[in-house]
Design a protein around this nucleic acid. Structure first.
Lengths: 215, 215
DNA sequence: GCATTTTTGTCAAGGTTTTAACAGGCGTAA
DNA sequence: TTACGCCTGTTAAAACCTTGACAAAAATGC
């Protein structure tokens, strides 16, 4: 009998993890839920509740050991895995991801990059040669990547994703304008920059309305 | 007396908006909450509830007029604004944002780009010359941008954000590893690629655990 | 070594979000 | 022009998430 862990909890863990990493590199050994909650802008109760979904990592009167908690969260998130990943579309977005996210420390290793632009094919990203997209099926059959990063124009997304699913790719990180749906046997994380812009726009507009309004 | 609209609702609107845009360019004139909900993977009830936070845009027996609804959501999100934006850090991430998001159709116009790399200063992004970061304060005093896109190494984020706040920048889109907190008078949208990777990693690991488990 | 303080894990209350249900308006077709 | 079915807006119930409160465990200080 497993208690189901809610998505909200999972969404918060990476933030905790990032902050714990900073504490760790600053040589801080322990932290209480109260101190952590202030930095994270949530309640102490929430921190304790979140962590307790996975077990009691703290100690009364002491708090949490930073290094231990850091490692435990890594284990919960599965960051010690090395899922093989391929990048489809060698544009700015994909390169930013590969180069600025501690990609290898987040559970993934890049094993292939594909594009259809002859100008790009043959060049390298992080030591990986960019291959022709037409070779992707054979590559998958030979190397079995778990995850694909989709960063292509939206017009070709569906076709490519369909092909990759058929070859056995089981996870997608999607930067394209098109939406990839979670479906049977496949997990998806969509990153829609466009949506973020719209949300920010709303926040600005809402704030303006608020400060303009007199009552 | 204003009814408070929840963040969850705002988070969903951009997705609806994107999809309505596709319908529109496919020449589809009307859609029911039921059809829309199936495409969006939510319940029809939720669609109706969400839209009703802002007014009754539909009609019994007919559904919603695609073009009308599309424009109404744009108005709600404030996409008809032209908030002036500057980009701090002319790396891959910033360029991807500017070039792949219909930036101008999302309520923003880019008026300046800044970097500290002499190799980049003087070059152009989308017709905007990259300026030296040391000139940013004067630029803000002269041009009053509302929003700044932060895409710099994390070590300099706090210092830059502090400076920009002082000059009157009121909104931040943050791509850096560091977290920028929402605070009095300032709105922030954080995009942490690293967190997305971790969430995806969790989903893969959780799915593996599930299919491995026998009971 | 004892008393006091700190701080967790947990329970239950409170709050918010999502879903279901349905009355009543509107389009459609005969 | 009327009858039927579609589909919204709205209300209420259910599910879910967050917060507050507290007993008990560990650390700290005297």
């Amino acid at each position: 009998m497993e208690k189901q862990v809610s998505q909200s909890v999972i969404n918060r863990l990476p933030r905790y993890y990032r902050y714990l990493g900073e504490l760790l590199s600053n040589g801080i050994e322990r932290i209480s839920s109260k101190d952590l909650s202030e930095k994270m802008n949530v309640t102490a109760s929430q921190i304790r509740q979140d962590l307790n979904c996975f077990g009691g990592f703290g100690q009364q009167g002491y708090g949490y050991n930073v290094e231990y908690l850091y490692n435990e969260i890594a284990a919960i998130l599965g960051l010690n895995s090395h899922y093989k990943a391929i990048l489809i579309g060698a544009g700015n977005m994909g390169q930013a991801l590969i180069q600025n996210t501690n990609f290898e420390k987040r559970g993934f290793s890049l094993i292939g990059v594909f594009d259809n632009d002859p100008q790009k094919i043959g060049k390298e990203i992080k030591g990986i040669k960019i291959s022709d997209i037409t070779d992707v099926e054979q590559f998958i059959k030979d190397n079995h990547p778990t995850m694909a990063i989709i960063s292509t124009p939206r017009t070709v997304v569906n076709q490519i994703v369909h092909k990759l699913k058929d070859c056995g790719v089981r996870a997608f990180l999607n930067f394209s304008y098109a939406e990839i749906a979670n479906s049977e046997n496949v997990v998806v994380e969509n990153i829609h920059l466009s949506d973020s812009l719209m949300r920010l726009c709303y926040k600005i507009s809402a704030k303006n309305a608020e400060t303009t309004k007199k009552d």
